[in-house]
Amino acid sequence: MFNMQSVARSDGRGGPENLRHMAWVTGGCLLVFALPFILETYWLYLVGVTAVYAIAGLGLVILFGFTGQLSLAHASFFGIGAYVSAIGGVHYGLPGIVTLPIAFAICLGAGAFVGIFALRISGLRFALITLSFGELFYWASVRWSDVTGGEQGLYAEPLSVMGIDFGDPINAYFLFAALGLLATALCFRLRDSSFGRAMAATRDSELAARSSGVSVARTRYIAFVIGALFSGVAGWLFSGHVGAISPNFFDMFASLNMLVAVIIGGVKTPLGAWVGAAYLVFVPELFGMAGVSNLYPILSGALLVLIVLVLPVGIVPALQQALRHLGTSRGDKQ
């Protein structure tokens, strides 16, 4: 039932298209480098949170947008990464960088295990399987309080690698920007690879995918594990950035929130993960700037409905359509 028609992408770029593309990329890079020197630390913190959620969101783009699998355990993998980082620091005094491979390995193992169910279950029932694992994770993180700190959670030190303190907002910013760009590039590469085509085929029509020699089960499985890894690494970054984690960061509603974000952003494009994450972080901020911060929780539902009605393809595809529309109408005039 989560069958999607592909949203038209800008294909067949010509020469001038390429130039414009390069100009966009250069401008973007300049902005990325300039931002930390323009913004206050408060905004840098929020940009960091956005980057973390975007990396996790990229995992969902691969999982849901590319492959069509609905997961409600995404926040749990995020939680595994976050807890490994915090537990390593609190209980074993491990520096952040050492906990990264551990987090990676545990997420790989957990993703590989939960993913087994993706081999033959899809759609809502797969969503329910992931929800079940998510509930078990949440339950364990509350009950196993000697290790996890229970409901009150654990404190985490900011990352520090080779003398560089990523508790410093500017250092942290560059770390997040670098990892975020890396993850985004990976995601784009994955989409355009042969595996990307296998994922799209699996999503659009299982039957067609099978008849063209794609192993649907294998594709689903690999996509699920990759998605889990993205989320786990994002979670690992997250705990040091916010400084404290507790189970309610990683419950069913957190997973739903992540899903809402990428769908709003545009679930089939890696940029959608960024826009979705920015939506989660900065829209409440807009209410704050307008001095009506407490209206956000009241209006957030209505806002979601409004977005669905006004931008029924997601923000990024809508923008792309608008840009293309602008481009063609200008072309007509010439």
């Binding site: 408060y42 400084g243 309610n248 960061f249 972080v281 704050g288 911060s293 929780p297």
Partner: peptide, 19 residues
């Protein structure tokens, strides 16, 4: 400021209050 009894929102709201 409303934190909805959530650690996640509280993180953001305390920073907004202070910064």
């Amino acid at each position: 400021l409303d934190d909805q009894y959530s650690a996640a929102y509280a993180q953001q709201q305390v920073r907004r209050l202070v910064e």
